[in-house]
């Protein structure tokens, strides 16, 4: 009935102010993004260049991977605080591997991913099987993995790595660095998976209503386990890319990254209660943060002020989102 009404509505109606206003509010994130881009482009000639776009993309890549994993975790109503430490641990493991086997770069990537996967699997097991609250389970992993990262390096960074280790982060394919390609592939693949596969729908269902999902035959523990495992795996991948970029294994790598990842997901419109959010939203949130970082750097805004501006923006973005969600009802 209502569908017909909107179908027969004259097209001119769509241009009325309330409609424009609704669209602006609904896509507030895009609007904010465009405003920020416009502002930086106006202030700096360098900002709008293709070169700078690539700089932003390179900086975004390691965050993108953990933000993707985080999105799935948050969609189930959980949270993964451990990704920053898992980055450190897997980076150390990769660095140690490459030191012993300098000619086998793929081995270091594999080791990093396996370490990440193992950490994620432990999180997943604790959350899905033992029913430990996600916050606690992953907080424990945060501390444990961070400690282990220092254990691997015996309290110090692993240095003196072969220069070819840097190839992972710096080699280019089609003119794009490998991490950027991994990021793009990751975003596209996960966006498709979440929208177009039964797995994606099950993740949304478990987050939206676990009891109903179970009655509909969804194996909720498996889904829960899988999102934490995936989050760990992606953190591992992110870790080896970061280590390769600096050609060393600093045990404090990735410290605090989990918060930026969570911020990206939340700015992207996800609900921390689960069931609501999207990969594209997260991608948008991520680029909002990264663009802001980049632009403020170009304008030589002091780091402390950058923090203040970023924090205010996160709160503002979510406020607008809450507000628009209220209007939609």
């Amino acid at each position: 009935m209502t569908t017909q009404e909107s179908a027969t509505r004259p097209a001119a109606w769509h241009l009325s102010w309330p409609w424009v206003r609704d669209q602006l509010i609904r896509h507030s994130m895009v609007v904010v993004m465009l405003l920020i881009i416009a502002y930086f482009s106006y202030r700096s000639a360098r900002f709008g260049t293709l070169d700078n776009l690539q700089t932003i993309a390179i900086a975004a890549a390691p965050f993108a991977l953990i933000a993707l994993g985080q999105t799935l975790v948050i969609l189930t109503g959980g949270i993964d605080l451990s990704v920053g430490s898992v980055i450190a641990l897997s980076a150390m493991a990769a660095a140690a591997t490459v030191k012993d086997h300098p000619e086998r770069l793929w081995l270091s990537v594999l080791v990093a991913m396996l370490v990440g996967l193992a950490a994620g699997a432990i999180n997943g097991f604790l959350v899905s099987k033992v029913n430990v609250p996600p916050f606690i389970a992953t907080l424990g992993m945060l501390t444990t993995a961070s400690g282990l990262a220092y254990v691997v390096g015996e309290g110090a960074p692993i240095n003196g790595l072969p220069q070819n280790f840097g190839e992972i982060a710096n080699n280019q394919i089609f003119g794009l660095q490998i991490p950027v390609i991994v990021m793009i592939v990751g975003i596209v693949a996960l966006a498709l998976i979440m929208k177009r596969t039964s797995y994606g729908m099950r993740v949304y269902a478990v987050g939206g209503n676990p009891v109903a999902a179970q009655i509909a035959g969804v194996k909720t523990t498996r889904i829960l386990f899988s999102v934490y495992a995936l989050s760990g795996l992606l953190a591992g991948l992110s870790g080896v890319m970061l280590a390769s970029r600096v050609i060393s294994g600093p045990p404090n790598l990735g410290e605090g990254y989990e918060l930026d990842a969570i911020a990206a997901v939340v700015i992207g419109g996800a609900s921390l209660l689960g069931g609501r959010g999207s990969i594209l939203g997260t991608a948008l949130g991520l680029f909002l943060i990264q663009t802001l970082n980049n632009g403020l750097d170009i304008l030589v805004v002091p780091a402390y002020w950058q923090s203040v501006i970023k924090g205010a923006l996160i709160v503002a973005a979510v406020t607008v989102d809450v507000w628009s969600a209220k209007r939609r009802v």
């Binding site: 039964s198 987050g207 209503n209 009891v211 069931g275 609501r276």
Partner: peptide, 22 residues
């Protein structure tokens, strides 16, 4: 609490129990 996933739409709720069929 247990029947429908209120945050999902009719189509997704409708396909959930027999996902493998779709």
């Amino acid at each position: 609490g247990a029947g429908a996933v209120l945050s999902m739409n009719v189509l997704d709720n409708g396909s959930l129990p027999r996902l493998s069929q779709f």
